[in-house]
């Protein structure tokens, strides 16, 4: 079974999680809890933000868009960080699960970045007076969105998936320079976008009655992101197993039915 999947059983600590069977068992145990937590916390955070959190003294109810926009923005950046970590594992340690996870993070990260951009637009129009401006924060987040899309396209552009993984990993790591630019753009340059309200070093410049629903919604989104990526990676592991089983079957009995279903891939 394992040999059919083609995982090298090196027995080294890092490659313990490269064993797809191990990953399927572990993730299968975690996934229901993760999903339940994601749904509960997201519903609590967004419901609290929409119906119970106070309106801002100058922005009024439009401030409620924050409870969607800010968690989506945090996930857009930290999702990219996860993609970069997978890329290092893939390039340096040739970790086979990291390859699959990187492929699956890409579209999800792009989706959350699109959500961040869209809700930012919906917030900017009534408050700033513009759907979009080319300031450093907005532009760098748009670049992040294009990096995700580039990664999604690049990892699928090669006939040999391994070459796609390598190329995608290099693109993802080059794009990491954009993360500090996004974070500090509001401090380094004049931007229309306001600076961060919540920082690691200082006290938040926000009432507690707004901070709580924001943090809960952010944790909910984070769990949702993790659950989606894990579910997609599980599916990818199963699909790779299907391909190698079909390939082994085609090789053993020379069945032409199986070969026709088979994408050209060296597993």
């Amino acid at each position: 079974m394992r040999s059919a999947v083609g995982t090298p059983q090196t027995g080294r600590s890092l490659h313990r999680f490269a064993n797809p069977g191990q990953f399927l068992r572990l993730s299968g145990a975690v996934l229901p809890w993760l999903t339940a937590g994601a749904i509960a916390l997201t519903a609590l955070g967004l419901g609290w933000g929409l119906f119970f959190a106070p309106a801002d003294w100058q922005q009024g109810d439009a401030v409620r868009i924050m409870y969607v926009h800010v968690p989506a923005a945090w996930l857009a950046s930290s999702g990219y960080l996860a993609l970069a970590v997978c890329s290092v594992l893939s390039l340096v340690w040739r970790h086979p699960l990291a390859d699959l996870a990187a492929v699956e993070i890409g579209p999800v990260g792009a989706g959350f970045t699109a959500l961040c951009l869209a809700t930012g637009s919906l917030w900017g129009k009534p408050m700033w007076g513009a759907w979009w401006v080319w300031d450093a924060r907005l532009t760098s987040v748009l670049v992040l969105f294009f990096l995700y899309l580039g990664h999604v396209a690049l990892v699928r552009a090669f006939d040999d998936p391994t070459r796609g993984y390598r190329a995608g990993a290099i693109l993802a790591l080059v794009g990491v320079v954009n993360l500090p630019i996004i974070k500090f753009s509001v401090d380094w340059w004049n931007t229309l976008h306001q600076p961060a309200s919540i920082t690691l070093t200082g006290a938040p410049t926000m009432a507690l009655s707004m901070l709580w629903p924001l943090l809960i919604a952010a944790i909910g989104y984070m769990l949702a992101f993790a659950a989606i990526v894990i579910a997609r990676t599980r599916a990818a592991v199963l699909e790779r197993r299907i391909r190698s089983l079909l390939m082994a079957r085609a090789a053993s009995d020379g069945g032409e039915a199986a070969t026709s279903m088979l994408p050209q891939e060296g597993v």
Binding site: T35, A38, T42, L46, L50, A55, G60, D61, A62, R64, I65, V68, H69, A72, P107, V108, G111, F112, A114, L115, A118, T119, L122, W123, K125, P126, Y221, A224, F225, A227, I228, A231, R232, R234, A235, L238
Partner: peptide, 30 residues
């Protein structure tokens, strides 16, 4: 509520996008 259409659109997207990704992943896994 002021600016209701903007708020409703934001929350609709904020709920629909994660649920869409989640359902797609669930179906693909099955």
């Amino acid at each position: 509520m002021t600016h209701l259409p903007f708020i409703v659109a934001s929350y609709a997207l904020g709920v629909a996008i994660p649920i869409g990704f989640g359902l797609a992943a669930f179906l693909r896994m099955g």
